[in-house]
Amino acid sequence: MRPELEIISAWIEPNTRVLDLGCGDGALLAYLAAHRQVSGYGLEIDTANLLACIQAGVNVIHADLEAGLADFGDGSFDYVLMTQTLQAVRHTEALLDEMLRVGRQGIVTFPSFGFWRYRLQIAMQGLMPVGKTLPYQWYDTPNVHLFTIRDFEQLCRRKGIAILQRTVLDHSHRIRRGPQLWPNLLGEIALYRLGRL
């Protein structure tokens, strides 16, 4: 989580308003509030996470992302964040649209299914991939859409979403040269800053 926090934090202008979709225990928002003086809210469906946010003093709103973001006005946030969440929602496209309706920019991170180790697991063992970023078995995973970096970028092109910035982390979750050159093979986690074309 740490490298992700730092990368996202560096992308965000200080003193801005952010909305974090699926904010978990609020660690990212707390980090951004401390380091970038952002204000905003997290949306979260899980009550244990909700409680953790309240304990951390993070503004959290109990909400189901699948129901959309109708409570939020157009362009009402500078950034809408979705870290490690997109693969776990059913209405992927609708949520991306909502994200860039409500936010001037979107920041998305996800585990890439195209990571070479995952490819090997399927190719060699014939088993669904399990690893650091995909820690679940096929039968208990909350992830309903698994996709690769190339998949995601194709979708962005088709939807007219501009990729303003991309960083790919390798297995050690560090920024290295290799994954930037061959992201779809060597990237285990992808981070994007998105906007409207």
Binding site: Y41, T47, L50, I54, N59, I61, H62, A63, D71, G73
Partner: peptide, 16 residues
Amino acid sequence: VRALVRAGRETSYAEV
């Protein structure tokens, strides 16, 4: 909550 968010006020919300 919607009105508070639109007003830019700090709020948390839980449905128990």
